[in-house]
């Protein structure tokens, strides 16, 4: 694969923290639950269906893709809506060129994603208590221009290895200028659609989580400030540091133009 470059001033979050601090409610709501409860997830074989407003709907064998695609390392900031952040070396492919192979029609205005629904393997889907009260399967969505943006990545690995189950094996979405929950994990279906699709956290708490979920230090979450974040690096509890949150998580130069004229306070 092509190695990525670490922007000056960024520090990588240690691998052990990237794979042991996860929000993947399908395996429990505590940060350490996913690493503990997901190890038996059967990720082989795994297919990803692309359907909806496309001329050539079809199914991808994800493991075949992993072997044939030219994987790229992308070192991205990851900003969770809960005001913590990491820097993660992902391994994956750009989403846009992949979608184009299925020939989206002119009616394809949005892209809807869906996580595997398998309560037998995912205890959080079986029990409302373990799953944090979410209606599964987890669904996410992007506007078509966001999905086609060169920063938008389908990740198949991190730190030079295939994804561990807790990080969304075998295939997940990474949209670095949006809050982490947009990065839907263990994807089985991508559907191109005409209307804005429903998205999980927005269904659960519409006044707290919007469809766009762009990282924005000037629009607070109703219950906490988004102006700064706890960066998860090497240190422990007593060396924890807060840093300023950057507009579009530091990717404003690349993506701000997607939202010109959009009231980001209203469309948060």
């Amino acid at each position: 694969y092509t190695p990525g470059t670490l922007d000056p001033g960024l520090i990588l979050t240690p691998e052990s923290k990237v794979i042991n601090h996860n929000n993947f409610y399908e395996f429990g709501t505590n940060k350490t639950d996913p690493a503990r409860n997901s190890q038996h997830l059967k990720t082989e074989p795994w297919t990803l269906t692309v359907e909806g407003e496309v001329e050539k709907p079809g199914t991808i064998d994800v493991w075949e893709l992993m072997e044939t695609a030219q994987l790229e390392e992308r070192i991205y900031r990851m900003r969770c809506v809960e005001a913590w952040s990491m820097v993660i070396p992902w391994l994956g492919i750009e989403l846009g060129p992949l979608l184009k192979k299925f020939k989206p029609t002119s009616r394809a205005k949005y892209v809807a994603f869906e996580t595997l629904y398998d309560p037998e393997q995912m205890p959080g889907q079986k029990s409302r208590y373990l799953g944090g009260g979410i209606d599964y399967p987890y669904v996410e969505g992007l506007r078509i221009d966001e999905a086609m943006h060169p920063l938008t990545t389908l990740a198949l690995g991190l730190y030079g290895k295939t994804l561990p189950p807790q990080n969304g094996a075998p295939v997940r979405l990474v949209v670095p200028w949006k809050y982490g929950f947009k990065g839907i994990k263990s994807i089985v279906k991508i559907r191109l659609v005409e209307k804005q699709p429903p998205v999980t956290w927005n269904i659960l708490a519409p006044h707290e989580y919007g469809f766009y979920a762009n990282v924005n230090p000037s629009v607070d979450h109703p219950r906490w400030s988004q102006a700064s974040e706890r960066f998860i690096g090497e240190g422990g509890a007593f060396s924890s540091s807060r840093q300023k949150t950057l507009m579009f998580n530091g990717y404003a130069d690349e993506v701000a133009s997607l939202y010109s004229g959009l009231d980001l306070r209203k469309y948060f």
């Binding site: 923290k17 042991n20 601090h21 913590w84 706890r230 422990g236 509890a237 007593f238």
Partner: peptide, 15 residues
């Protein structure tokens, strides 16, 4: 436990 890192990657929240 805190110096041992038992509280995980985001120990402040956990604590």
């Amino acid at each position: 436990a805190i110096p041992q890192g038992v509280l995980g990657a985001d120990p402040v929240k956990e604590l």
